[in-house]
Design a protein around this nucleic acid. Structure first.
Lengths: 225, 225
DNA sequence: CATTCAGATGGTACTTAGTACCCCTAGCGA
DNA sequence: TCGCTAGGGGTACTAAGTACCATCTGAATG
């Protein structure tokens, strides 16, 4: 208890100094001096100065990967929503730390760029997963997967940033709703009628609002297709 | 004619050396030596070593901004498509240079990150523009703008990368088609039925064609009701 | 023709991030 | 006691980027 780990002391010192004088005005030497440690030790624990601020992106990537891996074709969309929620929860867990990071990434271009690059790695995971899920030998349509992955991370970031700015009292509910919107967007209405549309194949559905519930209608719908 | 500008000689030397020994193995001193110029001159023309490879992102940003600015509410979507096409055409214009850059960004993480950060700036422009366009005092819905902007740049990048890899014989047609898909996605079906949906009275009919079979769609249909 | 002024180039010295390499010490099991 | 390992420390180096000043060249102007 008297000795927090060197790693933590470094992070602590770093954030304090970044608050005091700003990121660029703080050198690694300043940090190690404040932490009472050697410069070598700093780079043993963090690959770079930026790394102090984004320590566990790797873990987060694993988190997503794992959650997506444990799913089958039927539960794919739930897995995506879950993975997104997990990432959000991670940030919520960090609480104040996440907010301090946000003020840094908002003001320091280098850090913002770094953050964006990390997000792109999440997006890549989602893209590959969604592409597999959508995979259809007849019509591969990787563009659709690309679009959906982009929308997924955009939804997450949208809600996360709202929470970081203190605009969201219940970010978990918000992110669930946002994901519902995304999924809805990409599953409900399939791409209608490109001009040289290969009309004829596929399924034509007429959906209408009714007081009957869907299970009552299902047989009729099946008959139509 | 005998003397190409210093700027061009530097870029030329840089790309040659990057090809020969790789990006990280090439120092700025190597470049200036090869170009027969001084180190100072290099940094006068390019803010950083990475900048040699991405010289005109700023111009490209202006291009987008200008195209978006000259539009009204009715022509907004055409403006977005046009802007995207302009960016694509810029890369097509670069021809071989764009492809060399692609092999670099594909192999050097630092450069890939940099590229991604630039793309995020385009995305920001589109997001702001689309948010304005969608602006509706009653229901601001900035998430939808966020999603659409993400989809717009994802569509562009998808087609661009296909062309860079030599997979697209007619990228302009492809990007136009991709943009049609994006716009369709975000305009055709009005945001269907959030839970407390202000469902109107009367009859709501939505007709669409899809290649997915009904069982795939069923979860989404259930969610709608 | 001499002057001067602007713009582009060159050089030198400095700061800082990041790497390579080797040393030291504390603990711990054999 | 020996020897091993892990965590920390120090020194020296490379390379990007910045600050500042010096130099050259060409063109306009007296």
């Amino acid at each position: 208890m008297s000795k927090p780990s060197a790693r933590d002391r470094l992070a602590q010192a770093a954030f304090t100094l970044f608050d005091e004088r700003g990121y660029e005005q703080t050198t690694v030497d300043d940090i190690t001096e404040r932490a009472g440690l050697g410069r070598t030790t700093f780079f043993r624990h963090y690959r770079s100065k930026e790394d102090v601020i984004f320590p566990d992106h790797d873990r987060l990537l694993e988190l997503i990967r794992d959650r997506l891996a444990t799913s089958n074709h039927r539960t794919a969309l739930a897995a995506v929503s879950d993975a997104v929620r997990l990432v959000l929860l991670h940030y919520l867990d960090e609480g104040d730390l996440a907010r301090r990071r946000y003020t840094l990434t908002s003001t320091v271009p280098a850090l913002r760029d770094r953050e964006i690059a990390s997000v792109a790695r999440y997006q890549r995971l989602f893209r590959e997963f969604i592409a597999d899920w959508m995979a259809d030998p007849a019509e591969p349509a990787p563009l659709r997967a690309e679009l959906m992955a982009a929308a997924v991370v955009a939804a997450h970031n949208h809600v996360l940033r709202r929470w970081l700015r203190g605009e969201s009292p219940d970010p978990v509910a918000e992110v669930d709703e946002a994901m519902r919107q995304v999924i809805n967007l990409f599953t409900a209405p399939a791409p209608p009628a490109s001009r040289e549309g290969t009309a004829g194949s596929g399924t034509t559905i007429v959906a209408f609002r009714t007081s009957q519930d869907i299970d009552t209608l299902l047989p009729a719908l099946r008959r139509l297709t």
